[in-house]
């Protein structure tokens, strides 16, 4: 049986359930690289161009990890996932960066996904992928239908308030609300950033679990539904042409305006060009609405102790603020 390698990085966190079901339905064995660790990070740093951002370097590491273990590596070329929108330039060129930075690669399946002009091309990309693996039309169609179903289930879980890291673990098991104790939570915090920054637990040193174990309810951009994201991102003075930028800004704006959160932690990775724009937009909005905002930029050298201290200080500040507000209202 042929083996396909899926690197655990970049859009893995958005689409893994979809890809997994699809390939499994086609009877193909998939091998996912292990969770990011020191070794993978170092492999990535040494093979990738120095100037790249941390997530792209980590992705290189995952490909290095997989390259001797599989027959193909799946790195879709994701150009655009919505009409008139784009992904980051580094995402557009990701298969090329990998191909010319890493030696001795198995063939890369770099199906192009470009829905900028129309949605029809999507089907074609799926068939192309299946065909490459020697499958026929009906097999592919059936597999994709099934994959789509389970992907919908996954999205449903997210919209119900399950954090994606958990959702990936449980999406085919029994439904379980991770944030079930929400009524007892003292604080609600939005953790915002690119999916591969906020769900890579090595890169962000388990930030989300840390918050949750502190009795904090966590909301991430993937948990806000598309309709809301569109509505709130439309408030920008100019159309946001990055799909992921739109998700980040739209979700943050909606939570800020609807006053659903006590604070925002923006998780950015060192060298991210898109974030230099997005952070500015979100921070300005938060400041105007007087919602505490903090930016955590992670790089290869970030130490866990430093991050912990900053998060603790941020949580304390919010708790203190809440108490203070309550006092004032009690006196009035």
């Amino acid at each position: 049986m042929c083996k396909i390698g899926i690197p655990r990085g970049m859009f893995f966190y958005d689409y893994f359930p979809l890809w997994k079901e699809f390939f499994q339905e086609l009877g193909i064995e998939i091998i996912v690289s292990s969770k990011t660790n020191k070794e993978i990070l170092n492999l990535g740093i040494s093979s990738c161009v120095d100037e790249a951002c941390l997530p792209v370097k980590i992705f290189h590491g995952h490909v290095e990890y997989l390259k001797d273990k599989v027959d193909y590596i799946f790195i879709p070329r994701i150009m655009s996932i919505d009409r008139m929108e784009y992904c980051c330039p580094k995402v557009l060129g990701l298969p090329d960066m990998i191909r010319y930075s890493i030696g001795k690669l198995p063939p890369i399946i770099d199906t192009q996904i470009n829905l900028r002009k129309s949605n029809n091309k999507y089907k074609k990309s799926i068939y192309d992928t299946g065909k490459l693996l020697g499958k026929d039309f009906w097999e592919i169609k059936k597999a994709y239908k099934k994959a789509e179903k389970s992907y919908e289930r996954y999205i449903y879980l997210l919209n119900k308030g399950v954090v994606p890291i958990e959702a990936i673990k449980i999406y085919d098991k029994v439904f379980k609300d991770i944030n079930y104790s929400s009524e007892h939570n003292e604080l609600t915090i939005m953790v915002v950033g690119h999916s591969y920054s906020i769900y890579d637990e090595y890169l962000n040193m388990n930030l989300i679990s840390k918050l949750m174990s502190n009795n904090i309810k966590v909301i991430t951009p993937e948990m806000i539904n598309k309709e809301k994201i569109n509505r709130y991102s439309n408030k920008l003075p100019k159309r946001m042409f990055w799909t992921h930028g739109k998700r980040i800004v739209g979700s943050a704006f909606s939570l800020i305006e609807e006053q659903k959160i006590d604070g925002i932690i923006y998780l950015s990775s060192f060298g991210c060009g898109m974030d230099s724009v997005l952070v500015d937009l979100v921070e300005r909005k938060a400041i105007k609405a007087e919602i505490p905002f903090t930016l955590l930029t992670l790089d290869e050298q970030t130490g866990e102790a430093g991050v912990n201290t900053r998060i603790e200080a941020f949580i304390d500040m919010m708790k203190w603020r809440n108490r203070d507000e309550n006092n004032i209202s009690a006196f009035r």
Partner: peptide, 8 residues
């Protein structure tokens, strides 16, 4: 961003 892709 685009030039980093080119550089690699």
């Amino acid at each position: 961003m685009p030039e980093i892709v080119a550089k690699s």
